[in-house]
Design a protein around this nucleic acid. Structure first.
Length: 766
DNA sequence: GCAAGGTC
């Protein structure tokens, strides 16, 4: 029993700790469902177990399960139980702990890490625990030096710090569950359509709703700009120094003074400016850039995780924007040299000295995101390739030189009115050559001299108006959440995903749905901080008081329970109002056109998750349609050529948008979906959408006839009017990216063997 | 069917 067990937070950390402590002699062991690492040192055995984050999950006991019958005040005061989530870690942990004389917690050195460590300790049966030495290794980077010195100077486990994270867990659960149930019950939205409330998700939703309200309330104000186009070896534009002029008569006065006249240079300046290279990637910046190249944060995070486990990039969850001195740039560059980025690598290597850029945030938990290895040729495709390239190019850009540009400015006088001009010319692209995701706009500007006359060619008075604030896109939303300290680098994209899946927000740029607007409005009917980032800020203060041992975890949690009782009372007083607010918001709908029956009535689109109702606002009108659609529905300003009802645009992931009549039974829609006769019972074959949004061909006599055919998911599909000579199925034609394919929908049919390629012009499909 | 936080 002379051995040590080290508990690590994740497999990667366990590997690195084992490697550095054993000088590379550690071995991975797998036996009887156990998985751990092991090494020997002078007869002393050391085991390492890797957890994967939290090993237990807290929850309410089973008797609290029923939403409708459990009293919410009782739920607030309910005891909280723990469930083991990760059985295999648990088995390795308890087995090896029994064989060890000392235990070392070596999880990440932060609040959650301390909790993850103590959770693991708490799972070890008391009889094995009592006689053991329990210690904590404190390292803030997974480097040899850090790890070795951490294990030379072990400290004690900080139970107060773990408790502070434990309080966070419990408070989040209690508030989340109680309020989620309250709002769902109040609006009678139970089952799949429940309304969720949480410390992070609700303030995030409120942010989006607030912005939408600002946009809707925005009153544009007109303004004018007086512009003159000058010419000397090329065109360049001067803008009157007053910029946006809100007084129309003043703008007119200036325009009249200068119209038709040339200018005289008052001042001219040309200077060299640096184009600073970007900082190394932290999670937020990485997600922002990925979003810009068309990979949404959730998917980007998912891909980054997989690239990380494949050993291609470093750990993707980090706040750090400064490379640690231990990173061996040369060896990484050597690995990247044989890839399609060899040109860029050589550019970096051609410098006398490599000086990496630094960001503002320097933490010690993980390095910034950078490539650690080159992928095998052809191994990465699609978005994986895009994301890897983004990380690799960002890395190379941070190691290359700054760019340089010439910035020319001048002030030009026309009859006492002054015009500012500006031109930018890149003289040395520097890192921009490696990192093509950033573009610098160039504009022409000639060299000028003071007192020089410049010819003017065009005089304009442009009218414009002030613009409403921008909607958040997924990238700027994550950035804003980071600024407000909502969520963590690992959870922000998940929170946004949740808001989308629950039908509170949609699109990118992000808009709240009517349901999302209604939920926030109803949350605001009582005076609480549920929808404010302050909830998190205040929780942080409480957590600090626990870790500083000024308060106990129970004191803090119980105080929070008391507050929640009060909030719940206030909410119950407003229950009826809350119900009405949510109902009204859902039924509000967006106007998408006029009703041909009732000329004064709007046709509105009412969305509630995947249920869509499109109806005339006149009570009882026959134009009341229901759609169940997996996809986004957008209004168009067109009407159906068949029946005159408004048309909508249906956008499904991976498919080209379709124009539809709002009446599902309109011949316009039927015609488009008609793909010929079913060979089995001569019903009509029509395009249908599966529950998962995949399209396929099915017989109109379903469920009596269950004939289906798969369809290509991309591109436009039409019926040619021909019938397959082999199997009698209708012959279809698929058009995508100007490529046209004629095929039989029966995949293994003889017809497809010859893969007939049809020219666009040769035969126009009907 | 509830939260947010780890990690895969």
């Amino acid at each position: 029993m002379n051995s040590t067990l080290i508990i690590a937070e994740k497999a990667d950390a366990a590997r690195r700790i084992a490697y550095f402590l054993s000088d590379g002699k550690s071995k991975q062991k797998r036996e009887k469902g156990l998985s751990y690492m092991e090494f020997d040192e002078n007869g002393h055995k050391t085991y390492l177990v890797a957890l994967s984050g939290h090993i237990v999950e807290i929850n309410f006991p089973p008797e609290m399960k029923n939403w409708s019958s459990v009293d919410l005040n009782a739920l607030i005061d309910s005891k909280i139980i723990q469930n083991v989530k990760n059985k295999s870690s648990y088995n390795s942990l308890t087995k090896l702990a029994a064989e060890s004389s000392s235990l070392i917690v070596a999880t990440d050195y932060d609040r959650e890490g301390e909790l993850i460590g103590t959770e693991a300790l708490a799972l070890i049966p008391e009889k094995f625990l009592s006689d053991k030495i329990i210690k904590r290794a404190k390292f803030s980077a997974l480097t040899g030096d850090e790890i070795k010195s951490a294990f030379d100077q072990l400290i004690d486990v900080d139970y107060a710090l773990a408790d502070s994270a434990g309080a966070r867990e419990e408070i989040d659960l209690i508030w989340g569950a109680v309020l989620t149930r309250f709002f769902s019950l109040a609006s009678k939205r139970l089952g799949k359509s429940f309304l969720s409330i949480g410390r992070v998700q609700t303030p995030t939703l409120a942010l989006i709703v607030k912005r939408e309200k600002e946009i809707r309330a925005f009153q544009p104000v007109p303004y004018w700009r007086v512009k003159v186009q000058f010419n000397k070896d090329g065109h360049f534009t001067g803008i009157h120094e007053k910029g946006d002029i809100f007084d129309q008569s003043e703008a007119e006065r200036i325009f009249k003074v200068v119209n038709g006249k040339d200018g005289t240079v008052l001042e001219y300046e040309r200077k060299q400016e640096k184009i600073y290279k970007p900082a190394p990637f932290n999670t937020t910046e990485f997600l922002r850039e990925a979003s810009r190249i068309g990979v949404n944060p959730s998917r980007a995070m998912n891909i980054a995780e997989r690239l990380y486990t494949q050993g291609l990039i470093s750990y993707p969850r980090t706040d750090n924007t400064v490379y640690h001195k231990s990173i061996n740039f040369k060896s990484i560059l050597a690995k990247l040299k044989d890839t399609h980025l060899s040109k860029e690598v050589n550019m970096v290597l051609s410098q006398e000295k490599i000086r990496p850029s630094r960001g503002r945030m320097e933490t010690t938990d993980h390095p910034p995101i950078y490539p650690v290895n080159a992928p095998q040729k052809g191994k990465l495709t699609g978005d994986f390739q895009k994301v890897y390239d983004l990380v690799a190019r960002r890395f190379l850009a941070t190691l290359y030189k700054e760019g340089e540009r010439d910035v020319s400015t001048s002030r030009i006088d026309i009859s006492g009115e002054v015009f500012n001009t500006k031109g930018i010319k890149i003289t040395d692209p520097g890192w921009l050559e490696i990192y093509p995701y950033t573009r610098v706009q160039e504009s022409f500007h000639p060299e000028l001299a003071q007192g020089e006359k410049v010819k003017a060619e065009k005089w304009d008075m442009e009218e414009d108006q002030t613009k409403p604030p921008w909607r958040y896109d997924l990238a700027s939303l994550i950035k804003e959440m980071e600024k407000l300290n909502l969520g963590t680098k690992s959870t922000r994209h998940d929170i946004i995903d949740k808001l989308q899946k629950r039908g509170f927000i949609e699109g990118n740029p992000v808009r709240p749905t009517n349901l999302g607007m209604g939920l926030i409005e109803s949350v605001l009917t009582v005076d609480s901080k549920i929808s404010e980032p302050d909830m998190t800020a205040e929780l942080e203060v409480e957590m600090d008081s626990i870790s500083e041992k000024k308060m106990s975890k129970d004191e803090v949690v119980n105080r929070s329970r008391k507050m929640l009782h009060n909030v719940l009372e206030a909410l119950k007083d407003k229950e009826e109002l809350i119900n009405r607010t949510i109902k009204r918001s859902i039924n509000m709908g967006d106007a998408i056109g006029k009703c041909p029956e009732h000329k004064d009535s709007d046709i509105v689109l009412i969305k509630d998750r995947s249920n869509i109702r499109i109806t005339c606002t006149t009570e009882g009108c026959k134009n009341d349609f229901r759609w169940n659609i997996n996809g986004l529905i957008q209004p168009t300003d067109k009407t159906c050529p068949e029946c005159g009802l408004p048309q909508i645009k249906v956008i499904r992931r991976g498919q080209s948008p379709e124009i539809r009549c709002i009446d599902p039974k309109c011949s316009f829609n039927i015609e488009r979906d008609n793909m010929g006769k079913c060979p089995s019972d001569s019903g009509n074959l029509v395009v249908r959408q599966s529950r998962y949004g995949k399209r396929f061909l099915g017989c109109s006599n379903y469920p009596d006839c269950t004939v289906t055919y798969p369809l290509p998911q991309m591109g436009v599909i039409k019926f040619t009017g021909d019938v397959c000579p082999y199997c009698k199925s209708p012959i279809l034609v698929s058009m995508r990216n100007r490529r046209v394919w004629k095929f039989c929908p029966k995949m293994d049919c003889q017809f497809n063997k010859k893969k007939e390629k049809v020219d666009h012009e040769e035969k126009k499909p009907t």
